[in-house]
Nucleic acid binder design. Structure first.
Lengths: 209, 209
DNA sequence: TAATTTGAACTGACTGGTCAGTACAAAACT
DNA sequence: AGTTTTGTACTGACCAGTCAGTTCAAATTA
């Protein structure tokens, strides 16, 4: 079971179907929520028969869980890359933070629906995919926390800062600002939004230029 | 019709029932989402028969909408009070911002479930209560934007800042940090969390003092 | 002050529709 | 030649909303 002709990672055809299903599910669930979205809708939007959904995923919940894993792994990879890139170029930790803010914006710009759905589910309890979500959240936040800790160790950041809380606050800043951007002023450019957040991040809001 | 003994503003009994329904609904919906929460569950949790829900609210959606309105009006009032209080005491705009951050934290501390539910619904589209949510969101954000604008006008904040985006970012910072606090390190004190956010807000993260 | 009436508030069994998941034979891919 | 997809039909659990009937405290009456 599972080998077939194209061995590495399953057949392309199947992979394509799964991708279509992800894309259909992500927008529908972002808009309506998990429970209000029906499997029939997802199948229709993906241009696929309902049976195909169940051929590819064990259940609606499993489809959603794999969608979450898939999406967050993209984000985590992108954040890591941004941090490492900055390090290689000999930038400071503030530069790394800034690069990660930008990476976050790029991600949300490309996958606004996923982001929205993620935020909507993140703090819920008593849901089937709760544990998956926790794991995946921690992976992403850990990247930010890592940079903060390095900054504290290297004397670049104050030792007084609370790493965990500050990381959460930074994530929240980017998340909410970006969702606001996408929802209420989508015509603005990414650079524009990034500049506004950089200014806030570097404490240049209060007067001193 | 409608007079009865206790005239002013409807009977106390009815009001008490509605309050119980709000409280039951807010935790259930925060945990499970709107669609996954049944009216039977809400009624049971409130210690009331299902029919009572429909005697008091036209539908499940209406119950939820009124819950949203009720909750956000509390938040808005609290933010306004914080801002005005600071102004009366002759504080700066940074002080006002800081007071509002604290007011936000106090609110989330008291009503974590409501906050969670609000965040989960805020960026959705195609839902019945969408317009209600927009109105109510704007009321709250406007308070923050107002303080920022006054700060810019008074020369206290840089003219370069983007008021709308910065307001969103500030809200996000408080929101996500507070939800993280409540979810993952609930033993910490409000003062503690407030201090961490103040530090971030005043740009004291990067080295200097 | 005891008996009666009123009506707002509440109850919970019931209905009609919806939806996740199943079944499977035929078709299409690779 | 095996894997994947299709299309249609079906089942059974679940749930929003309804409605005929009940409760009870206050108001009215005698």
């Amino acid at each position: 079971m599972e080998s077939s002709s194209a061995r590495s990672g399953g057949s392309t055809r199947r992979e394509a179907t799964r991708q279509k299903l992800y894309e259909a599910a992500v927008t529908l669930i972002a808009d309506q929520g998990f429970s209000a979205t029906t499997v029939d809708e997802i199948a229709e939007r993906a241009g696929v028969a309902k049976g195909t959904v169940y051929y590819n995923f064990a259940s609606k919940s499993v489809l959603f869980e794999e969608l979450l894993r898939h999406g967050v792994s993209l984000l985590t990879a992108s954040l890591k890359e941004a941090a490492e890139q900055t390090a290689h170029e000999g930038g400071s930790r503030v530069d790394a933070l800034d690069a990660m803010v930008r990476a976050g914006l790029v991600f949300i710009d490309r996958y606004p629906a996923f982001t929205q759905l993620y935020v909507a589910e993140l703090w819920r309890t008593n849901r089937a995919w709760q544990s998956t979500l926790m794991v995946v959240r921690q992976e992403a936040v850990a990247v930010v926390e890592g940079v903060l800790r390095e900054g504290v160790a290297g004397g670049e950041f104050s030792e007084e800062i609370d790493v965990q809380l500050t990381a959460a606050a930074l994530v929240g800043m980017v998340l909410v600002a970006a969702l606001d951007w996408k929802s209420f002023q989508p015509q603005r450019s990414l650079d524009d939004v990034h500049a506004a957040l950089s200014r806030l991040l570097q404490g240049r809001v209060s007067g001193r230029v």
